[in-house]
């Protein structure tokens, strides 16, 4: 029963969205519904937070190997939540200096801002930067000219890597003007403009068809694994 209602909700929600661009009177619905999802997503954080607490507390109480890290996670989570929800160290907003809670939680000088600047930022951006190392080892390992396809892949990467720096200018800048199309920096642009455009277009069209087919399968209830499958 609950599954049938869920399927009905899914179908009705989808149909509303599908007709909304065509019916001027329905434009508002889709905007409203988008807002609802955002509220729902914000409420879902509670669900995630609950799951996190449960898993870490279980590890902590079991005192298995590495339990100290669970304690660190729990502490970090609770402190962040407390200083953020409580706006610790936030001063009132200039537009309403008498309303103590009017400042933004991430204003410069607040505790939440400190955590963001000195904990979140360095960790996330360093993890992002680590990709430079991974890119290098992946290129070394995977870019072998085994066959025509692999050669095309690495050859293109080669041209782009050279063409997008000063090295391209140094290596092929001497080419005369009538052959300037062969200069690495121009070759890189040609690859992007012609081959990359064609390849990406076909991928994008294919994906759009895939999304449409998936949408239909979901709306008519053919694909319902998110509800607990066919069981």
């Amino acid at each position: 029963m609950s599954r049938s209602i869920a399927l009905l909700i899914c179908l009705l929600g989808g149909l509303t969205m599908l007709v909304s661009p065509f019916l001027p009177m329905a434009t508002e619905w889709s905007n409203e519904v988008t807002d609802w999802f955002n509220i729902l997503a914000a409420m879902a954080f509670v669900l995630g937070g609950g799951s996190l607490l449960k898993v870490q507390l279980m590890r902590l109480s079991a005192r298995g190997p590495g339990w100290g890290y669970s304690a660190v996670t729990l502490l970090a989570f609770i402190v962040t939540l407390w200083v953020g929800l409580g706006k610790v160290g936030v001063v009132a907003d200039p537009s309403a200096p008498t309303v103590a809670w009017s400042g933004k939680p991430d204003d410069e000088g607040s505790a939440f801002w400190w955590i963001y600047l000195y904990v979140m930022t360095p960790i996330t951006s360093t993890l992002f930067a680590v990709l430079a190392f991974y890119v290098a080892s992946a290129a070394f390992r995977a870019f072998r000219a085994k066959n025509l396809e692999a050669t095309l892949l690495l050859g293109t990467a080669f041209v782009i890597l050279l063409g997008r720096t000063f090295a391209g200018v140094v290596l092929t800048g001497w080419l005369p003007d009538w052959a300037s199309g062969l200069r690495l920096e121009n070759l890189a642009v040609t690859i992007m403009d012609v081959f990359n455009t064609a390849g990406n277009r076909a991928i994008i069209i294919g994906i759009a068809l895939g999304v449409a087919a998936t949408g239909i399968r979901l709306l008519i209830g053919l694909d319902r694994s998110y509800l607990g499958g066919d069981a």
Binding site: A139, F140, L161, R164, A167
Partner: peptide, 21 residues
């Protein structure tokens, strides 16, 4: 840094292929 990073990568690809062949 971009230039030298790219040059390193190119060198790595060339070495990788040289070893492979």
């Amino acid at each position: 840094p971009q230039l030298f990073g790219h040059l390193l990568l190119i060198a790595l690809i060339i070495i990788g292929n040289a070893v492979y062949f």
